[in-house]
Structures are given as structure tokens and as C-alpha cells.
């Protein structure tokens, strides 16, 4: 193990074992869903605090506001406007805001917010390289982790190739920026060559991987290692206990 290098960022929250981070965020999402608005608000606050502790507050808030917050607001607004009800707040042309719609909207929006906020946090905390290492350490097949990593790496490559194809097609006279119909027609000469060239390239990739022992069986070694500390274990046990407590608590509340 001495020959391996541990990947560290220097931040204690981000340096937790990825398994701990994943479990923690999933438990938060479950807690948020089980007890309505109060638990949702509590979970969102916890996520903000954790993001700040991880030093990712700005990135977290900007992603959160652009996705979760926007969708929640849109859902509340559309439900308020379009769901008919007795309790009409005001009318504006064909639209009428109703109390029933507003309550229905906040119900759906709070579910989405409660489940999605911990996921935004998780994306900010987890480092892909560490997550993959941890997955392999826990015995997940390298084929699975390869698909994961290759996908993340291949997207920028293919985006570059798409740019090249678009330029080439423009050079030979395909218009890409005119009216709607012209743009639709430009879609096919761009996506077609992109797909065909990628598929033909698959064989080359297969040969390259075979030559490097990808399908070889037996134990593997990695240049990097990952730590699973006592703190991680304590936190994971704590997360499981919390999960058990809230699920049992919810069931008890239902039965009463």
C-alpha cells in the first residue's frame, strides 16, 4: 500500500469516504420525504450547512437555484393557476389563482425539493475518481466502473467532433442558422456522421483495451488508494440508525 497515493482535497467533508457521502445524502433525501414540509425545510438547511462546511457553498447554491428552486417555483405557479378550486384568490383573464392549486403545488414542490436538494449536495461532495476507486474496492466489476468513467470522458471528445462536423457541413453549404425548417434539416447531417464514426471506432477501442489486459481476470492494483477511517464508519452507522428511526417513527405515526 505504500506505493499508492491517497487522493485528498484537504477538506474534511469532501475527504470522507465516498460511500459515506452517498449514504448520508440518500438518508437525508428519505428523511425529507417522510415528514412533509417541516422535515423538508430541515433537510434543505442541513444541506446548505454541509455545502458550506465542504467549501462548495457558491457552487451548490447556484446549481440548486437554477434547477431545484426554479422547478419548484414553476410547479407552484402552474398548479396555482391551472388547478380549479372553490377558494379563488384572484382572476386574470383565463387564469385564476386558487388556494387548492397553491396547496397542491407546494405539496409536489416540497417533495421534489426534499429529494433533489441532497442530490445536488452529493454531486458537489463526491469526486468521481474516488467514487470509482471505492466502488472497485467494494468488489464492483471494473467493467461497470469503466463504463462510468468512459462515459464522462467521451462526452467532451464527441462534443469536439460534433463541432468539427458542423463546421465541415457548413463549409459545404449546409445552413445551420436560419428558419426552423432549415435548422431541423441541419440536425441530420450533423448527428449522422457523428454516430457512424463513433460506432466504427468502437472496434479500435475494444482492441486497445484487450491489449492492455482489460478482460484479464485476477486481482488488480491501483496507483491510487482511498481511506475508510473510523469517522466514516461511525457516520455510516449513524446514518443507518437515523434511517431506521425515521422509518419506524413514520410507521408509528401512520398507525396512530
Amino acid at each position: 500500500m505504500s506505493a499508492t497515493e491517497t487522493i485528498r482535497s484537504g477538506n474534511r467533508v469532501r475527504d470522507l469516504n465516498p460511500a459515506t457521502q452517498v449514504l448520508g445524502c440518500l438518508v437525508l433525501a428519505v428523511v425529507a420525504l417522510l415528514f412533509g414540509l417541516v422535515s423538508m425545510a430541515a433537510v434543505v438547511v442541513v444541506c446548505f450547512v454541509l455545502a458550506a462546511a465542504a467549501g462548495r457553498f457558491v457552487a451548490f447554491v447556484s446549481t440548486w437555484a437554477k434547477t431545484v428552486l426554479v422547478l419548484s417555483l414553476v410547479i407552484v405557479a402552474l398548479q396555482t393557476m391551472f388547478i380549479p378550486g372553490e377558494e379563488v384568490w384572484w382572476e386574470w383573464g383565463p387564469l385564476s389563482a386558487t388556494g387548492e392549486g397553491f396547496r397542491r403545488g407546494t405539496l409536489f414542490a416540497s417533495r421534489i425539493m426534499g429529494a433533489a436538494t441532497p442530490l445536488v449536495l452529493l454531486v458537489q461532495l463526491v469526486d468521481l475518481r474516488r467514487l470509482v476507486l471505492e466502488m472497485e474496492r467494494r468488489g464492483i466489476s471494473p467493467k461497470v466502473t469503466y463504463v462510468f468513467v468512459a462515459t464522462v470522458n467521451i462526452i467532451p471528445q464527441m462534443r469536439d467532433r460534433m463541432g468539427v462536423i458542423m463546421d465541415a457541413q457548413r463549409a459545404r453549404g449546409v445552413e445551420t442558422d436560419a428558419n426552423w425548417w432549415v435548422r431541423i434539416k441541419a440536425f441530420f447531417p450533423t448527428i449522422g456522421p457523428l454516430i457512424i464514426s463513433s460506432i466504427v471506432g468502437v472496434e479500435e477501442k475494444a482492441i486497445t483495451l484487450e491489449a492492455r489486459g482489460f478482460t484479464a481476470t485476477g486481482p488488480r492494483t491501483s496507483l491510487y488508494s482511498i481511506q475508510d477511517t473510523g469517522v466514516d464508519r461511525v457516520l455510516r452507522v449513524g446514518a443507518w440508525v437515523l434511517l431506521a428511526v425515521v422509518v419506524v417513527g413514520r410507521v408509528v405515526l401512520w398507525l396512530r
Binding site: 467521451i154 462526452i155 462534443r159 435548422r183 448527428i191 463513433s198 468502437v202
Partner: peptide
Amino acid sequence: QFTLMAILLIPIGVAINLLGGTLAKQLQM
């Protein structure tokens, strides 16, 4: 179904999905 060629096809399929979506947005369809 899980041949090496098939497994290698997955990342490409995912990339095509994402790029198709991006392109459709870019061309404002």
C-alpha cells in the same frame, strides 16, 4: 448481450443522447 463490443457501445450511446439533446436545443428545436 454483454460482449466487450456491447459494453463499449454504452458510453457512445450515452454521449449521443446528451449531444443530440444539446444539438436540438442549440438548433432551437
